[in-house]
Amino acid sequence: MRIYFELALRAFRQLFAYQAAMLAGIFTNSVFGVMLSAVYLALFDSHSDGTSVEGFSARETVTYVWIGQALIAPVMIWGWWEIIKTIRTGAIVTDMLKPLSFFGFWLSRDLGRAVGHLLLRGVPTLIIGALFYDLVYPGTPGRWIAFLVSIPFAVIVSFCFRFMMNLWGFWVLDHRGIAGIATVIVGVASGHLLPIAWYPDALRDVFNMLPFRAIVMLPVEIWLGQAGIVEGLGLQVFWILVMTAAAHWLQSVAERKVVVQGG
């Protein structure tokens, strides 16, 4: 087990070398946070005072926006094709020569990366949001802790999905087709684009049955108190179990037909 910790630690440390990228990321996330907050506040203003839309007040909506922006980097919801890259370059050859779980090898590094991104990008972005907007905060220490726990859970679910999308590369050498579709699905069904509650009933029911809501929506609901701590974390754990099982299954199928590029 030690090796997985060592891998995570190095992935974490590695991020500190890219300070300019971190600052640029915080800047981008904050600009989007400001723009989206402005849009929602304007929309809410045009309603009469004190309205809430499908359970979200104006303050809660702005809080949702900033949590969403802060989570972008840690849960890495946009394209992550590191494994496909190694398939293409052939570097996967040396990774597969190691006496490690392939899944564990990548997951531990992703968790290390996620912790780094949380500290270097997520927290600063959220602080900027808190400085300029009147956010809602988890009322109790228990909720703060539950929220903190929900982030690694969200990362694991997100990782499993990204891992499986990458394994597709064992069959398909060009991943652009999958990439486009995957990005849309995660962006919408995770609740990143809009709170899932805001979608039309049919769509909302579908999204509520998919694992993606564990990536963005559940942490937000735990923070805002819309989801019970046990229910929220429990649902994430459920999806972790399902998704890791699926990832392992796909990995075993992929391994059986391993075709690595020449060299």
């Binding site: 052939g90 570097a91 050859v93 040396t94 020569l97 190691k98 060299g263």
Partner: peptide, 9 residues
């Protein structure tokens, strides 16, 4: 132990 000259582990 494996060494591929064109890659590195």
């Amino acid at each position: 132990g494996v060494v591929f000259g064109q890659r590195t582990q």
